[in-house]
């Protein structure tokens, strides 16, 4: 689980989950984990670059791993931290297989939702270029850094919210965010000149 720490002081996710479901203290089942954390897993995979078309497949990959390894989860870290690590591995495998290197099709609805209707043709083209470049940079980033960057910069979550979501200390979020922004800016600079040359 590269880049993910397991703070020993985190509350036991097993305890929390069991209490939330009114169950005696016992290892939760994969169904319990699904009910409690499906939205987190779903969003995390998107933050890590899993395309919409592949989301259901990768989502199930995550829960297959959860099912296999749930017995080994000791509750020393938050459940979301553990799940985030699984998502990282699944997303890394997904990226290695080149699934996300395929052309991305965006529906007209999605495009119109992302673009401001007030923009003129030139501004719109410029915005499309900026988006394409930002997307390329994100795709080239380290997955864990990308996820934190997306949470902070795109979803506009606060560092405290990210900390709670990932089950890591706020300081860890700050340091990861710092590293992620540095990588993003560096990659953006390296990609930008090529884009400019191509558009001229």
């Amino acid at each position: 689980m590269k880049g993910i720490s397991h703070p020993a002081h985190s509350p036991s996710a097993v305890t929390t989950l069991a209490q939330a479901h009114g169950m005696p203290l016992a290892t939760p089942t994969v169904t319990d984990v699904y009910r409690a954390h499906r939205d987190f897993v779903w969003a995390s995979l998107q933050r890590m670059g899993v395309r919409d078309a592949d989301l259901p497949d990768q989502f199930q990959e995550v829960f297959i791993v959860v099912h296999r390894r749930l017995d080994s989860f000791e509750g020393r870290s938050a459940m979301t931290t553990w799940l985030f690590g699984i998502c990282l591995r699944v997303a890394a495998g997904y990226r290695r297989k080149g699934c996300n290197k395929r052309e991305v099709c965006i529906s007209d609805d999605e495009l119109s939702r992302r673009e401001s209707p007030a923009l003129g043709p030139e501004q719109r083209a410029s915005q499309q270029e900026s988006r394409a470049l930002a997307q390329r940079v994100l795709d080239a980033m380290d997955i864990a850094k990308r996820a934190v960057l997306v949470m902070f910069e795109i979803e506009e979550l606060s560092c405290e919210e990210i900390s709670r979501s990932l089950g890591v200390p706020v300081g860890t979020v700050y340091s990861r965010l710092h590293a992620a922004r540095a990588q993003f800016e560096s990659l953006h600079q390296s990609f930008e000149p090529r884009t400019e040359r191509r558009t001229r």
Partner: peptide, 27 residues
């Protein structure tokens, strides 16, 4: 460019009801 690019990127979307049911069955 960075500001514009980041602003134009879409946030992760929530699961739709049908996706919820489908994934529930799978899990």
């Amino acid at each position: 460019e960075i500001q514009s690019g980041l602003r134009s990127l879409a946030k992760p979307r929530a699961m739709t009801e049908i996706e919820r049911q489908l994934t529930s069955v799978a899990v």
